[in-house]
Design a protein around this nucleic acid. Sequence first.
RNA 1: GUGGCUAUGGUGUAAUGGCAGCACAAGAGAUUGUGGUUCUCUUUGUACGGGUUCAAAUCCCGUUAGCCACCCCA
Length: 436
Amino acid sequence: MTGKKKAVKKLPASVKIKAVRGMSDILPEEMKFWRHLENLAHYLFRLYGYKEIRQPLLEETGLFARSIGDDTEIVKKEMYIIKEKEGENLSLRPEATASLVRAFLEHSLYRESGIKRYYYLGPMFRRERPQAGRKRQFHQVGVEAIGSGHPALDAEVISLAGRFLIEAGIKNFEIQLNHLGCQDCRKKYIKVLKDYFKTFQRALCPDCQRRFDTNPLRILDCKKEACQALIKSAPKVSNSLCLRCREHFIQVQKFLESLEIDFRLNARLVRGLDYYTGVVFELIHPELGAQNALAAGGRYDNLIEKFGGPSLPATGFSFGLERVIMALKKEEVPVAELAETEIFLIVLGEANFGEGFKILQTLRGEKLKGEMDFENKSLKACLRQANKIGVKFVLILGDEERQKQSIMVKDMAGGEQKLVRIEKLTEFLKKLLKKS
RNA sequence: GUGGCUAUGGUGUAAUGGCAGCACAAGAGAUUGUGGUUCUCUUUGUACGGGUUCAAAUCCCGUUAGCCACCCCA
């Protein structure tokens, strides 16, 4: 290729390709945020004894229907379902807990001793109408801790979620707690709630009239003014809790207080997924509008047994990474740039190109991050480029240097330069880069 | 899924029915081997499809996408 580049002709609109709705590219400039959170997850969750696990993106559709609930929006409307020629349909996972429990049982991981702690990280899929913080492919990191009903485990998981945000650099968030009751008292509460709302059923908004049948707990979550008054005087969960649940909730709060974790009780906090029982929580960021839940989680003490496994209590949470990144940006949290190019090699004259190309390979072999120009651009243009990408050193290899078996090393910060013999180059650069 | 708002170079914006302009970014250059500042020049755009009109970025319809709220949820 010589001469001027021709302008790239645009494809006609009829064949313009673009990403699927609600699924966005994560471009290099965004990547530092992702790596910031992913690295933190790997470090922090392991610190607490959680082991990484990765499940497939596809599972049998029935798995989600059974765990999340047949009547939830997620299962009814939002799953990406792949029709198989034979056998059961497959679905892209809308969340991770169901498939984690599946894997847990399939590989008999319950045979291991003690509390089983896992963390995961990856894309989830829900076919919702997209918005900021609500993509159709979105990403979660989360943990699941299986095998203990102890309130300290709730406290561990909740405090871990809080610590994740704090270490990520987010200051402005709130932990909200509620107790939905165990299987028994939850059922009891739902009955009490339905009895209460039954008398006022006609006063409820249309959505809530529907919720009355599908998920009465959700009525507590309604934002309509008409319902607010009724909700206010509705019976509280706390009054329906059995003695054990009540004691458990108190213990969880005590443990959290002992760890100096701030939280707020929210009697109207409910969960949309059917498998939740007991203590549930959300981590809310106040500046993110309607998508303000950075993370949510809670106990699911009956799910494993429901899937045919042993009766093991469990709890966990998951973060929506897109939302955490929105919070990072809102709070202008400084996030470290990813490792950048340290050295830019400039070759003058095509005769020296091969030699320069070899030197670059040697530098890279020594773990020095280097680049060079392949287009025989002018020295000026190369320096400008090197300056733009912010390298610390520029190496110049021309006829003069070549004759002396040396290379010019230029410090971009100060501007001074020094002739260095090629065999001493890597040693020389390493010393400088470690110091600076 | 429901309702609403929006769509102009890579990015941010101007043009209120009459010449698509500006800034940043990008590329080339300012006496031939020295960057950042400055200066000159250059490339690149009305999301898509229709309609109204002498004339459409501008008005209308549809599509697509993004955003906001709801639904739901991380």
